[in-house]
């Protein structure tokens, strides 16, 4: 059996006695891009720092290339792990030019080789010819590219990205995260990204682990996290949506104020038990002949789409995403229909 490149086995980390990460398992295979997503304070950065070797583990172990690099009482120092890391504030060396930054850890290779590597890395991150600029002459996005080039220069197998795009504006964030994904995939480098921004996580990660309070609650693809969240926290944290109360009639049928809904999956709870049904904005569509009457409570223009908050006749509030040319004002009445592909239900 092939071993994963990186393996975290039931690790526990503490900060001054307070448990930050508990009983956490993570396997990362060669070439994967895994993203740890969670609200601030959930321990995701601690996990990353434990992998990098800045944070000792209090229990469990971390294996890299099938070698134990962290266990209680032992932490292989970050210098010896050969892991690349990109930091939130870039952490570039301000008194050096771009080339100097990229090859600072490689000076033992000699000047000519350093120059060659620097040029190669600059080409990869799309900064050709910028080698002799100073850091303060670059924009935020360019600085983060330099930071990425610096992390890639020693050709690590694993690269850690600590909220790398959170200091950039939204447009740059999306563009750069796509580019970085492309670069890592093309170079065959395994990556672990930590972020609190789900769009960044969706754009970057093959797989996303949603973290809360030191645990990974669900590790799955973006599609599955959105459409079949494993628990309420994930459902709440990922994407938008509302919960509607209902009663389970049979394992795959729920009676709600919006009508009786049958779904594509079965739940094991007793028929008759009270449940909550997750309704995503895309589950409710505009339909002039639809069965449900609603009035517009709020509207948020998003460009191609408009996100409406609708109040149904029985006072239930739901979110709905209409194409932008269905333009309604607050207070207007609309008719909608349910288009539920995935029925997600949690016990009350």
């Amino acid at each position: 059996m092939e071993h994963p490149l990186l393996e975290l086995k039931q690790i526990e980390c503490r900060h001054r006695g307070v448990i930050a990460v508990e009983n956490l398992n993570l396997h990362v295979n060669q070439g994967d891009l895994v993203c740890l997503l969670g609200p601030s304070g959930c321990g995701k950065t601690t996990v990353l720092r434990a992998i990098a070797g800045f944070q000792p583990v209090n229990a469990g172990e971390i294996r890299l290339r099938d070698q134990r690099i962290s266990y209680p009482g032992y932490t292989l120092s970050p210098e010896k792990r050969r892991i690349g890391m990109v930091f939130q504030d870039y952490a570039l060396f301000p008194h050096m030019d771009v080339c100097g930054n990229i090859t600072f850890g490689l000076r033992h290779l000699g000047k000519a080789e350093c120059k060659r590597i620097a040029n190669e890395m600059l080409e990869i991150v799309g900064l050709n010819g910028m080698g002799d600029r100073y850091i303060h002459e670059l924009s935020g996005g360019q600085q983060q590219r330099v930071a990425l080039a610096r992390a890639l220069a020693p050709r690590p197998e694993l690269i850690l990205l600590d909220e790398p795009f959170s200091n950039l504006d939204i447009e740059m964030r999306e563009r750069l995260s796509n580019e970085v994904r492309g670069i890592l995939k093309q170079q065959g480098i395994t990556g672990i990204l930590v972020t609190h921004d789900q769009h960044e996580a969706f754009a970057m990660g093959d797989q996303i682990g949603v973290m809360s309070e030191g645990h990974i609650l669900q590790r799955d693809t973006a599609y599955n996290l959105y459409h079949s969240p494993a628990n309420r926290f994930v459902a709440d944290f990922i994407g938008q949506g509302v919960f509607v109360r209902g009663t389970l009639l049979s394992p795959d049928t729920v009676k709600t104020p919006l009508g009786t809904i049958s779904g594509d999956r079965a739940y094991e709870w007793e028929p008759g038990s009270e449940v909550e049904l997750l309704l995503r904005p895309d589950d409710i569509v505009y339909d002039p002949d639809g069965p449900l009457q609603a009035s517009v409570q709020q509207r948020a223009f998003k460009g191609a789409e408009i996100l409406y908050t609708l109040k149904l006749e029985d006072e239930t509030e739901v979110l709905s995403l209409f194409p932008s040319h269905h333009d309604f004002a607050v207070g207007d009445n609309v008719t909608v229909d349910l288009a539920l592909d995935h029925m997600v239900v949690f016990p009350l």
């Binding site: 210098e79 930091f87 060396f93 020693p154």
Partner: peptide, 14 residues
């Protein structure tokens, strides 16, 4: 504060 020390260490520098 700028994480430059960490950046040095992950590059294998003391």
């Amino acid at each position: 504060a700028n994480e430059e020390l960490d950046a040095l260490r992950v590059q294998g520098l003391d």
